[in-house]
Simulated assay, not measured.
Amino acid sequence: MELSHPVLFLPGTLCDERIWFPCWKAMSIHQRAYVPLQWAESLDQMLALTDDRVKEYGAPAHLVGFSMGGYVALEYTLANPDKVASLTLIGYNADGLSKNEIASRNNIVSLIEKGMYKGSSESYLQPYLHPSNQDNTKLVSYLASMNDDLGNGVLKAHIKAATPRPSRLKELTNLDVPVHIVAASHDLIAPLNTLEHMHTIAKDSTLSVIEHCGHMMLVEAPDKSAKAIEDFLAQRNQ
């Protein structure tokens, strides 16, 4: 599929380009690029990396962000709406982090800094997958390998860069950029009802729901996720 503007993909917490590989294989988008957020140690660096890619591949660009990548993509769009052709937010709740979520994140950072964080890949991934996929050894191994390769240093940097995270619901109501919200039916991290609410209040939005998936819908159902992304971009390309 030929698009008028490039498509830039942003990963989630403790993810790199491997989170997108299954989707990319199912896509026919040629003008795509990746924003390596695993290189960044702060939100400012994440936004700078995004801007570098936008400048390199040409503005306005379609931004596609997964989870934390959705947060970064939205922050970039709010600051640079003229550089963004559309915004796709996957598994990202724009209502910010609760006090309990912030406390949990700060606790993980503290444990990492003390050398006491022992969270295994399996326990870390458990709430991110649909129950039917939690015993899928091939899928779990794929995600665990990515997480283990990046390690606690990247996890700490990602948590600190995206914590605290203010609510951006008010900004969505006034955003003059087309927004595509992609939700998973069984996402415990960004629950479907919260993303449905985002859709109802966003000024110009489309909602896609990926059934029988958890937060890791990009690898749990890559074909469906890729189709949702491509269908939206094709509509905006007309």
Rank of each mutant, 00 (worst) to 15 (best):
M217V: 13
L139S: 07
L49D: 00
P127I: 02
T194F: 13
V154T: 03
D149F: 09
N152M: 10
N147C: 13
T173D: 01
S205H: 05
S104Y: 11
S167G: 04
N152G: 00
P131L: 07
G12V: 07
D51N: 13
T194Q: 15
D148R: 12
N237K: 02
W39Q: 13
M27A: 10
V64E: 03
L192C: 05
V72Y: 10
P36L: 07
V179I: 15
M46A: 03
S67L: 02
L207E: 06
V182Y: 04
A79L: 13
A157G: 01
S4F: 06
L74D: 09
S141I: 04
F9P: 00
S120C: 11
I159T: 01
F9N: 00
I159P: 02
R105M: 09
S123V: 14
A103E: 14
I229T: 08
M217Y: 10
S185M: 13
E113M: 04
N136K: 13
E101W: 04
N147V: 14
Q45I: 05
E211V: 09
L14E: 01
D204F: 10
V182E: 10
L207Y: 02
L43I: 11
L125W: 06
L233P: 00
P222M: 10
V177K: 07
S208Y: 09
L74W: 09
M27T: 12
